[in-house]
Design a protein around this nucleic acid. Sequence first.
DNA 1: TAAAAGTTTGCAGCCGCTGCAAACCTGGCC
DNA 2: GGCCAGGTTTGCAGCGGCTGCAAACTTTTA
Lengths: 187, 187
Amino acid sequence: MAAALRLADERGLENVTVENISEAADVSPRTFFNYFATKDDALLGGPLPHGPSMRDRLLAVPADVPLVPALLEAISADIAEIQRERDFWLLRLRVIRSNPSLLPVLVARGECAEQETVVAVAARTGLPTGDLFPQLAATLVGAAFRTAMMRWATAGDGRDLYDLVREAFGVLATGLATSAPTHEDIR
Amino acid sequence: MAAALRLADERGLENVTVENISEAADVSPRTFFNYFATKDDALLGGPLPHGPSMRDRLLAVPADVPLVPALLEAISADIAEIQRERDFWLLRLRVIRSNPSLLPVLVARGECAEQETVVAVAARTGLPTGDLFPQLAATLVGAAFRTAMMRWATAGDGRDLYDLVREAFGVLATGLATSAPTHEDIR
DNA sequence: TAAAAGTTTGCAGCCGCTGCAAACCTGGCC
DNA sequence: GGCCAGGTTTGCAGCGGCTGCAAACTTTTA
């Protein structure tokens, strides 16, 4: 993974072949594919920082906490983990940013987490899994998290990732309508 | 596109080669690639129903309309277009559903529209393009729209796509916190 | 020290995708 | 009809991603 990221960062993803990567990592190309199903996987396919299931984590939050803060709480361990490997993730996100074709792959990776979130939200709200709300909530949470992460990686200000996610989740909680108040605040 | 969709629907995407598709469409494989950059493109890559830019459409909505309804208004033409080609889109979405690898591709397709939405929201709210809010709003709108579409394609009830999108946008407007009221409503 | 179990590698081969140049239309003009 | 200019379609050669299989190698265990 390190070799793949370094090369992709240096010369751009399309100028890096699996042969290059495996050569830099001192293994045969065949071995590369023993560990990664895809070239892209070498860039994004690290083991997800996942302990207990989303469902369990979300239900572990006291029932009187509203949904969005509960979701934030449920993923806070992941956020901390990302910040612990800050440099690694910043490199990874820079590579994603400069190779837009990877963004969908990132989305795909988030998808299994998203499926878990559907179940988790359904469990917590008591709605059926097939309902619009849990599905919508899950994709929105995923989208908000991704946006916050990209922003964290891009913005020069050394803002805390947790802060950015909390801000994004704040918008999620109160809705787009009320959370563009900068407009009126300015007057 | 029709041949590709039919074959993918019949036997699953991984069992369909470009050669199969081009054969079914009575052209050479090389010609296939003159029209589609990618095999997936033949499934999702139809011309996007896009007239004027998102920015112009959004600014065309009277200024006193709140953001979310304005966004809904701005994309209503696209929604109508999709419903006009109902059968085609239902087939397309069924294929996407049964070939999860296509979902990220769908996201990628929406991305250029999303970039436009960032600009549009920034223009309408007066915030800078680089701000968190326009970016967040754009991804959330995209995610909500996609979720509504998948639901429209899946649910047996013949609900209007416009209705579903409006419901999803409603959640977006009022926030996740307040829009799972089913919970309290039941009591 | 030898067998068992696991890892790495080479090889052959399919498929997606591309650049290039030849073949083939098509419509307009003498 | 014959010819030319434009565009479209095709074949071909070739790269790179990816896979199944079986041989070579390494490590563990008894």
